[in-house]
């Protein structure tokens, strides 16, 4: 009987894994940048509590937070291309879908961080003659940022994990590289273990930092 020999992992495979890791980092960072930009804007508008607008913004935020990212990705990549002339590449679809997904969660965090600062802080600044932007920039942001950072870093960790789903629309990130390597080497146990460890190496330090930042906020205590 012929003995089957599993192909070995080569240094080229290691390079592929690194490349995949690089693409995972790229997609995640771009998505977080987009998400932060849109999310900041929407969260800021939400914090103003303008009656009708506030509800309208929820129409943007809530469906994104309450539907699966996989369905969002498939809709953006396969669905939109089918009915419009706009034909995004897997990379574009990945970055923008993940970015818009991030923005909904970021908006909630921005809104909550701004509202975490007591009303008296606005009043004190106003009564000293400061306008909205000066108050926001000089008084509110420096306080809100302490609430914002741990939650936002937590969100980044989460978005790093779910960025793996972009492999399902064919984008070659770390997960996709893993998939490709299992097809070539027939060593799924080993490959998926390596891929998991690589994600862990990226994610764990950031989530440790999030926890550290959170403990800092708690020791900072109540403002006042």
């Amino acid at each position: 009987m012929e003995q089957y020999i599993f192909p070995k992992l080569t240094s080229y495979d290691a390079l592929l894994l690194l490349k995949g890791m690089g693409m995972t980092i790229t997609v995640t960072l771009l998505a977080i940048a987009i998400g932060l930009a849109i999310g900041f804007f929407i969260g800021l508008l939400r914090s103003l509590k303008i009656p009708v607008l506030s509800k309208l913004l929820l129409v943007y935020i809530e469906p994104i937070r309450n539907s699966p990212l996989v369905a969002q990705l498939f809709f953006a990549y396969y669905g939109i291309a089918m009915v419009t002339d706009f034909n995004p590449s897997a990379f574009q679809a990945a970055v923008w879908t993940l970015g818009i997904n991030t923005s909904a969660f970021a908006a909630v965090i921005v809104d909550a961080s701004i509202r975490s600062v007591e009303k008296g802080q606005w009043e004190a600044a106003y009564s000293l003659g400061m306008n909205y932007w000066k108050t926001f920039r000089l008084v509110i942001v420096p306080q809100a940022i302490r609430v914002f950072i741990p939650s936002f870093v937590g969100l980044c960790v989460n978005q790093l994990q779910v960025s793996s789903l972009v492999s399902l629309i064919g984008f070659v990130d770390l997960t996709r590289v893993g998939y490709m390597l299992t097809l070539r080497t027939y060593r799924p146990f080993l490959i998926w273990s390596i891929v998991a460890v690589l994600y862990f190496a990226l994610s764990f330090p950031i989530s440790k930092f999030a926890r550290y930042a959170e403990s800092r906020v708690k020791s900072y205590g109540k403002i006042g």
Binding site: V157, Q161, V162, S163, S164, L165, S167, L168, T175, G178, W192, V195, A196, Y199, F200, S203, F204, S207
Partner: peptide
């Protein structure tokens, strides 16, 4: 919590 569910 620090690895993607898809990979799991």
């Amino acid at each position: 919590r620090n690895t993607p569910f898809l990979v799991q």
